[in-house]
Design a protein around this nucleic acid. Sequence first.
DNA 1: CTGAAAGCGCTTACAG
DNA 2: CTGAAAGCGCTTACAG
Lengths: 313, 313
Amino acid sequence: MTVSRALKNPAQVLPEARARVEAAVAELGYVPSHAARTLASSRSRVVGVLVPSLSNEVFVDTLAGIQDCLGPAGYQFLIGNTNYSADKQAELVSTYLTHAPDGFLVTGIDGSGAIRQRLSAARVPVVHMYDLSRTPDQWSVGFSQQRAGFTLTKYLLERGYRRPGFIAAQLDPRTMQRRAGFRRALREAGLDPDVEILTSEPSSVGLGSKLLARMLEHAPACDAVFCCNDDLALGALFECQRRGVLVPGQMAIAGFNDLPPSAWATPSLTTITTPRYQIGFEAARLLLQILDGHPPERNHIDLRFTLTPRESA
Amino acid sequence: MTVSRALKNPAQVLPEARARVEAAVAELGYVPSHAARTLASSRSRVVGVLVPSLSNEVFVDTLAGIQDCLGPAGYQFLIGNTNYSADKQAELVSTYLTHAPDGFLVTGIDGSGAIRQRLSAARVPVVHMYDLSRTPDQWSVGFSQQRAGFTLTKYLLERGYRRPGFIAAQLDPRTMQRRAGFRRALREAGLDPDVEILTSEPSSVGLGSKLLARMLEHAPACDAVFCCNDDLALGALFECQRRGVLVPGQMAIAGFNDLPPSAWATPSLTTITTPRYQIGFEAARLLLQILDGHPPERNHIDLRFTLTPRESA
DNA sequence: CTGAAAGCGCTTACAG
DNA sequence: CTGAAAGCGCTTACAG
C-alpha cells in the first residue's frame, strides 16, 4: 500500500519511504499494470472514440482535439473507424464495451436501435459529435449542418447565381442536413431545388470530378455547384479545368469544411469553415465534466460555423 | 470454469451446460472483462501503433491495413500520433507499456536511444514500418526510400529535364533518404544536386505553394521539381497556376506517395506509388507470426514502390 | 466433461 | 503516515 501511495499520491508518504520506492522503481524498471488497476478500481481511464472515416482531415482534426483534452487528463482512447457502416458500429461498440471504457465520443451513432440500447445498458456516458439534433437526454457537441447548408446557398444566391446545383456523396445524415439547408434556401428564393447529383459512394477528389461531369450533362444551365465537402469541390474544380470551363466565370464552385488545400487551390475555394478541432476538444471536455460528476447545464453545445468566401464562388 | 469454457471453447462443454450459459449471458447482458482477462492470462490482445502523423492519407491507409489484419485476429490497438516528436514518442511508449501490449507497430522510432531500450527491456516485439534500414535483429516492413527517390529523379532526367530541384518539408529520416536518392541520381548524371529547398516545417499543400515560390526565386533556371510528397506537389502546382507558369511546359512537377487527388489534378501528377495499405497489413501479419511463435526467416520485408508517370512531368 | 484452488497486480476501506 | 485484508473477474493448472 505504501508503494501504491508513493506512486499516486507522493504527499501522503514520508520522504524517506518515497525515496526507497522511487529507487526500486528505477532499479526494476517497474511499469504499473493498467489491467490490474482497472480491475481493482473499476475505472479504466479509457474512452472509446467512434468516427465514420479517417480519409479526409475532418475527423483527424477532431481526434487531435480529443487527444489534446483527454491526454493531459490521463486518458487513453480506442479509436474505431466505422466506415459509415452500422454493422461496424455495432461490432466496435461490443468490443470496446469489453474494455470497460469510462465514456464514448461518437459520430454517426443512431439515436435509436440496438447500439443505443447496448450503450445505455452499459451506463457509459456518450457524447455525440457533429450532430446537435439529439434528444434532450443525450449529450452533443457540433453545429447546425442545416443552417450551414442554408447559409452557403444564400451566399451563392446573393452573388447572383440563379441555378445552383448540389453535389453530394456518402449521404450520411449530416450531408443530408446540409442538403436540406440548400433546398430550403432555394425554395425560399422561389428557385428549383432539384438540381442535384447524389451518390452513396464514398467521397473523394476523383468522385468530385465525375459528379461535376454528370452535373454538366444533366443540368447544362447550372451556374454554381455546392459540393457537400471540399474533396468533392476540389475534384469538381479539376474537372472544370480539364474541360476549359472557367471557374467562377462559367461555373462557380463551393465546398464544405475548409480543408487545408482549399485556401491554396487556384482559384481558392469558397467554403464553410467548420470547428473540427474544437468539436473534439469540447466533446472531450464535456465528457470529462460528466465523469467528474459536474455535468454542465445545457447538454447541446453549438460551436458554430463560418462562411469563408474565396475566389471560386 | 464451465462458464469460461463455454464462452471461449464451446466444444469442450456439453450442449446442455452451454445452453444454460448462453441463456444467462443473454439475460444479464454479460460483457467479458478485458482487464480481468489480461491480468489472468498475461496476454492483452492489444497492440500499440505509433505513427508520426495522421494529417495526410499515408498513415491512415496504413492504419486501415493494420486494422484489416489485426481486427479479425481479435486484437485491439492503441493508436498514437507522435507528430514527428521524439518526446511524444517516449511519452506514448511509456503509457502504452502500461497497457501491456503484445506488440508494437511503429514508424519513426530510432534504432538507438532510450525508447529503444525501454522497448527491449519490456520484451515486446516491435515491427518497424516504412523503413528497411534496420539492424538485422529488428523487424521491418517497407520499401527503399532511397531507391524510390533515385528512380523518380532518373525518370525526370530521362524526360530531358536538366536542372531539377528538390523540395522537402518535415525532413524526417524517410524524406532525407529520398533526398539521398535524388542527389545520387544527379551526381551520377554529372549535374548539380544542390538545387533544393528544405524546411523542417510540417508538410502541407500551402507549404508546397510557398516552397515552389522560393525555388523560383533562388533557382530561376530550375525546370522540374521533385516534391518529397504529393501534398507539396499539389501546392506547387497551384502556385504555378497562380503565376501562369505552364506545367509541365515551363516547370515539371513530381510528387511522392500517389495520394488520391494526384490522379485527378489538372495536370495529373507524376509520382511514386507507395504500398501504404500493404505495409500496414504485412507489418501486422508479421507481428502476428512472431506472436504465434512462427517468425518468418527474413526479418525485413521489401514491398516495393512503383513509378507512376502522368501529365505533370 | 466439470469444478475447486490459487493467483494475476492492483485499489478500497478499514485498523492502527 | 503505514499496513493487513479482501476482492476486482478472469485464467491456469490440476484433480476428479
